[in-house]
């Protein structure tokens, strides 16, 4: 369908409205009402972003007295030539992949489950909000205790299930520490995804599934071609948000491991925190932040592109 056709059909559907001076004044009034908050948003987003970009090409003094000496792309050269950066990038990508996939899939599964009729459904739906209502930092501290090798409940649970035969120090092992930070972050994000998916599912007309069932479609077929197809716009939103949250994740990891053991969970945001707030190398920290921002942007755009192209297919 071409753009012209859409415009034409919309014009045909829309009743003709006479735009008089009163209506124009009302529109202007509306614009003026929205303008301050829109301006505030632009300022709050644009100024820090522009400052970060400006800092990234300067050797900025720690005390913030001036922008400092212009150094071009030197800070980026330091970042890109550092093995610490590439190791952190690898950790960030692993963390992000795990975070995005698990929180999307678990969120979707939870929503599908909570969309069924069962006793206590309202209570279960109310519980879904609990992880999302918890601040990331508190969540990190809770999971740190939960994963503790002496007093944590995770060991007890896994021991009871027969998964382990002795208490383990999960956060002292590089692999399990990374895995646990992913699981902890997913625990919260999946609830957010679940809420969005559930709201999408509630708009799905029951007749569609009933008709498909009558036509002989199985559970998997109905899920794939009706439920998932209906949820595609929500899926795109959820996935893009998950990608952005993944790249910017800091609190949970910092509270659980501070990036350790070694550099096992040192994602880029922790590296940025260290440069900006501990070492106060503002130029280098800003260059890292620009790289991370670009990564999150590209990640989000690629996700949108992939999901939209699969939709058009």
């Amino acid at each position: 369908m071409s753009t012209t056709t859409v415009r034409a059909s919309r014009r045909a559907d829309t009743p003709a409205v006479r735009v008089g001076p009163l209506a124009r004044a009302a529109r202007r009034f509306g614009v003026r009402m929205v303008a301050p908050s829109a301006l505030l948003l632009v300022v709050l987003l644009a100024i820090p972003s522009l400052l970060t970009v400006a800092y990234s090409v300067h050797k900025v003094p720690s005390n913030g007295a001036s922008l400092g000496e212009f150094v071009g792309f030197d800070n980026f050269a330091v970042v890109l030539s550092s093995p610490v950066f590439w190791s952190s990038m690898r950790t960030t990508l692993i963390f992000s992949a795990g975070f995005v996939v698990l929180s999307t899939v678990i969120g979707l599964a939870t929503a599908v489950l909570l969309n069924q009729e069962f006793v206590g459904r309202s209570f279960a739906r109310a519980l879904l909000i609990v992880p999302w209502a918890m601040p990331w930092l508190v969540l990190g501290i809770l999971w740190r205790w939960y994963a503790d090798g002496s007093v944590g409940g995770l060991n007890s649970l896994l021991l009871t299930l027969g998964v382990i035969d002795d208490y383990q120090e999960f956060l002292a092992d590089p692999t399990s520490a990374l895995l646990l930070t992913i699981v902890a972050a997913v625990w919260r994000q999946a609830s957010f995804a679940g809420i969005l998916f559930l709201s999408g599912l509630q708009t799905l007309p029951a007749e569609l599934n009933e008709a498909a069932e009558l036509d002989g479609a199985g559970i998997w077929g109905r899920f794939l071609h009706i439920t998932l197809a209906w949820l595609r716009p929500v899926l795109i939103t959820v996935t893009v948000l998950n990608v952005i949250y993944a790249f910017l994740q800091f609190d949970v990891i910092f509270a659980m491991t501070q990036g350790g053991p070694g550099d096992a969970t040192q994602v880029l945001s922790i590296l940025i925190y260290r440069q900006l707030f501990v070492v106060t190398n503002i130029g280098l920290g800003s260059a890292l932040a620009v790289v991370l921002g670009a990564l999150a942007l590209v990640g989000g755009l690629v996700t949108v592109k992939l999901l939209y192209s699969s939709e058009s297919r």
């Binding site: 350790g260 053991p261 070694g262 260290r274 501990v278 070492v279 106060t280 190398n281």
Partner: peptide
């Protein structure tokens, strides 16, 4: 010194973990 201080932990942990 704070720059050095911030880096010691990564190296020492790598040592302890046998990396």
């Amino acid at each position: 010194y704070p720059d050095f201080q911030a880096k010691v932990g990564d190296v020492v942990h790598a040592l302890l973990l046998g990396e």
